[in-house]
Design a protein around this nucleic acid. Sequence first.
DNA 1: TGTACATCAGTGAACGCGCGTTCACTGATGTAC
DNA 2: TGTACATCAGTGAACGCGCGTTCACTGATGTAC
Lengths: 210, 210
Amino acid sequence: MSESVSKNTRSDRKEATRRRILGAALQLVEEGRSPDALGLREVARAAGMAAPSLYNHFADMDELGLALVDESLLRLRAAARGARKEIMNQEAEVALKTLLQQFGKAVAHFEPVLRLLILQWFNPNPEYRRIIRRELSIMRREMASDMSDAAVRRGLGKSRYEVESDAIFSLLITYVLNVLDMGKEKREQRLAMLERQMLMMVLGSRALNG
Amino acid sequence: MSESVSKNTRSDRKEATRRRILGAALQLVEEGRSPDALGLREVARAAGMAAPSLYNHFADMDELGLALVDESLLRLRAAARGARKEIMNQEAEVALKTLLQQFGKAVAHFEPVLRLLILQWFNPNPEYRRIIRRELSIMRREMASDMSDAAVRRGLGKSRYEVESDAIFSLLITYVLNVLDMGKEKREQRLAMLERQMLMMVLGSRALNG
DNA sequence: TGTACATCAGTGAACGCGCGTTCACTGATGTAC
DNA sequence: TGTACATCAGTGAACGCGCGTTCACTGATGTAC
């Protein structure tokens, strides 16, 4: 039929089913199911198949869980990259404000995914932590590099932003941790606070380094 | 017998047993048992009693878990208060370094408890989060108040440290999150980084407010 | 002080449940000749 | 192109396990008179 999208070979269909399973699991999380209560049967049902069929695609539940986390992290990173691109061309003065507005929206948009990631961050199986930490570290480094580029573009000396970007990440992470239970108004209060704190960090970094 | 410590009345012995149970549970966590794998039977065995007996002291497992978290938080707060008291009399220059050294040691010392708290922070039952958040908030406010007092003592204007102390707490929390899987050397690197970041925060706060 | 009764912390056995996983099997798809 | 055989994604039923929890009961402790 559609020669472009799938060769309709057996392995292609298998791969499609695998993605269908992951999609269904993510969908369940999006719909508000507590991520840690995501059971094999539930995922199977959502994907429209019998429970044991999952074993044709994942060796065990941990493998499915890890694949899910991996998928989520990829989405987050893509979103972060896009957001940074948008800011690139902005004036320094408004860049921070724009960044934080986007961040606030992104947190709302990715809320279920973030919930999933936070939960799995402390999964007894250390593999989860490894993946999450690796990906977070990449995001942080990308941010540091962008900050460095931006500094050069503004005529400031090219300096390293490892420590500063790490601190900013700390602020962002605890923002997420704090905000996940809060309503919209409280989130905005927190966001304003976050803005002040990030400003402090930037000023303090200049005072210390420059 | 010992008229001072216990009247040996029935309710006193019951209360003692309750504390024995909590102590045994905490002991298990200290010994490295993954806190989320703490089962009713395991706690009962550690406390030297039959499983159903726990129901004479806690309505269900959640009540026991919440009591455990509460107990842990009290210990942490006591330790934090003690640490701040020690610093009070120090010169401003060395205070930060001392604080961080103590913090690093405290993290190592309370590692199992911290692990327990982090895990329960994201327990599906929101009551856990409520307790933890409340207690963290108290600690943060105490810290802000101490910072304010210290500023006055140094002749600086009495100003509010809500935003700054919150940022510092963010840095401390993510330090803990990051460090729990690390060896001793990496932790010290991280601690040095944390010191720079806290310095940045303090400088930035002055730049923004003063 | 003694006796009869009430309370209640602690117990051994068992229940029900949902979980991840295994198994023998089916039937459509792919492959060899 | 047709036939015989191999592969393998998907299935229904069942297994074993450990969990929190319930229950009927015991026996020491407390209370009333």
